[in-house]
Each structure stands twice: as structure tokens, then as C-alpha cells.
């Protein structure tokens, strides 16, 4: 492993200052499950790592009325097990509970899952579907940006050199919304997603879809909203034909690549198949709240 220094800043303020000073030679160390692998394999090289694990400003889940605030250093297992997440953004907890292995979930953090910017990152999908906003701190002050805008490509984000992700603000699902997350892996646990899908849906009393969000992972340079599908579904009364058509439209919006986990053609088939299944589940699910 390439050698690096380790610093554990005593406060958020000193983290921000030290990190800014280190410029591109510094990295934030949270769970380490992604960063340390990359450092060891030589993909990433940094002179100094700043450990944020004990910074209380960056940890924990707080209920702020219409939204939840989740610290960047909050562990994935805590999101998966959190009662408030389960009851207000259930598909986020579902996604968290399927990320990596139990050992990984006990270390990995929400912030890490976001800033590593993998197109297959499981928690990012429900966060996009909820229109979550990311809060950054820097010497220049705080900045908020929507997670959808933040993601630019595989490993590419809009983050600035001196910025630290402090947390994420996640709007709660409104009453009557139903949500779901599906992970398609090559095995039933500890698998990087070949395709993942998150969505929520809101229907009116007559069963007509008022609003819907559908986010696809691992089939484009970043996780993407299936906007055409959303438009198509709004105002429709879902039946099998409608859902099939929605699934077909969704597959068309994906632009997967072929890699070790799947081919382009195979991924399109999976997107279509699992979108249909996800919508089916959403339509038949009991109301989450």
C-alpha cells in the first residue's frame, strides 16, 4: 500500500482547514471500504487521510420534520436499521440493507457511497428519487447541491477540491407514496449491482398515477432518472399493458455498457424486466406509511 499520513481532526472546522491545506493530496477517510481498496491497488494515491469517523457533526440521522438529515459519516448499517428511515424513506433503508456484506455495511458510510460516484451505488438511487440535497462545507462556506446534479460520471462529481461532504438532506416520502428498491446482482448477497432500480409512486383515490419517480443504476455513466417513463406514467391508470410499455420505454432510456458483470443487451433486458416487476410491486404494495 502506498504510504500516507493519518490525521484525525478534532473538529469539523479543523477538518475543513486541514483538508483545504492538503489540496489534492488529501482524502477523507470514512468507512475506508472503498478508499483503502483503491489506495492499495494503486488506483488512488494520497499523502494524507483525514479520518472523520468521530466527528459528531457528520454522524447520525436526525428527523427535521419534512426531511431527514443524514451525516456523511453515518454507517450504512445504521441507515438500514434506522426506524425513522424505515418509516419515512423505506426504500433507502432497503437499498442500504443490500449494499455489500454485513461487514462492509458495518463500516461503509452514506457519504462514501455518494462521493465514490459509482454508477451502481445502491443508496444513491433512492436519494436521487427523493431529490436529496448534499451539504458541503469548505473554508468559503457551505454549499448545497442536488445529488442528481452532483453526479457527473463514473467516479466523477461536481465536488471541489477543498469541499467536504457533511451530510445529505432527504425529503420524506409524502403520505400515500409507495417506494421500492431492487438490486439485481450475480448472486444473492455481496454483489455489485448489475442493474439496480429505485422508485416511488403516488396514486390518487381512483388509482390514477399522480406522480412517480424511477431511477436506474449501473446502466449509464451515473444513476439516472427515467424521465420519459415518469412522464408516460403520470395521469395513467396502471394495468399490465401500461406497465409493460413503461418498462419498454425505461429500457430505451438506459445506455449500459458491456463489462464483466453483464452485456449491454443483457442489461437492457434486465432493466425492462425489473422495471416491470418494480412497478408491479409498487402497484400491489400496501401503503408504506
Amino acid at each position: 500500500m502506498a504510504a500516507f499520513d493519518y490525521v484525525k481532526p478534532p473538529s469539523l472546522e479543523s477538518l475543513i482547514n486541514d483538508y483545504a491545506q492538503a489540496k489534492s493530496e488529501g482524502a477523507i477517510l470514512a468507512g475506508g471500504t472503498d478508499l483503502l481498496v483503491k489506495i492499495r491497488s494503486g488506483l488512488v494515491s494520497r499523502r494524507v487521510l483525514f479520518d472523520i469517523n468521530d466527528l459528531h457533526e457528520m454522524k447520525g440521522i436526525s428527523d427535521e420534520g419534512d426531511s431527514l438529515r443524514i451525516g456523511a459519516a453515518t454507517r450504512i448499517c445504521d441507515v438500514a436499521d434506522s426506524n425513522v428511515v424505515q418509516s419515512t424513506v423505506p426504500f433507502l433503508s432497503l437499498a442500504a440493507s443490500q449494499l455489500g456484506s454485513p461487514q462492509i455495511r458495518n463500516r461503509a458510510t452514506v457519504g462514501g457511497n455518494i462521493v465514490s460516484a459509482s454508477p451502481a451505488a445502491d443508496t444513491v438511487l433512492p436519494l436521487i428519487a427523493m431529490g436529496a440535497r448534499l451539504r458541503f462545507g469548505s473554508q468559503g462556506g457551505n454549499r448545497e447541491v442536488s445529488i442528481e446534479k452532483f453526479m457527473e460520471g463514473p467516479g466523477q462529481t461536481d465536488i471541489r477540491e477543498d469541499e467536504v461532504l457533511i451530510g445529505v438532506v432527504v425529503p420524506k416520502l409524502s403520505n400515500g407514496c409507495k417506494s421500492h428498491f431492487i438490486k439485481v446482482g450475480r448472486r444473492k448477497a455481496v454483489a455489485i449491482s448489475v442493474v439496480n432500480i429505485a422508485g416511488w409512486i403516488k396514486t390518487d383515490r381512483t388509482g390514477v398515477i399522480e406522480d412517480v419517480r424511477l431511477v436506474l443504476g449501473a446502466v449509464a455513466p451515473t444513476a439516472i432518472r427515467a424521465g420519459e417513463t415518469e412522464t408516460f406514467l403520470r395521469g395513467k391508470r396502471p394495468n399490465e399493458v401500461v406497465l409493460k410499455e413503461a418498462a419498454r420505454i425505461t429500457a430505451g432510456q438506459s445506455s449500459p455498457i458491456s463489462d464483466i458483470r453483464g452485456t449491454q443487451k443483457g442489461r437492457r433486458l434486465l432493466v425492462e424486466a425489473w422495471t416491470f416487476r418494480l412497478l408491479q410491486i409498487l402497484m400491489t404494495q400496501n401503503e408504506a406509511n
Partner: peptide
């Protein structure tokens, strides 16, 4: 962090000790 052979309990929770400094 792929295999779990290095599992230890850190404050009671299983973690991959290869992925903890």
C-alpha cells in the same frame, strides 16, 4: 474486504479487519 476471513469484532460488530486501519 471481499471474503470475511479477517473478520474481527470492533466494539462488538463484525468488520473486515483488512479494511480498518
Amino acid at each position: 474486504g471481499d471474503c470475511g476471513a479477517c473478520t474481527v469484532l470492533l466494539n462488538g460488530k463484525p468488520v473486515n479487519s483488512c479494511m480498518v486501519l
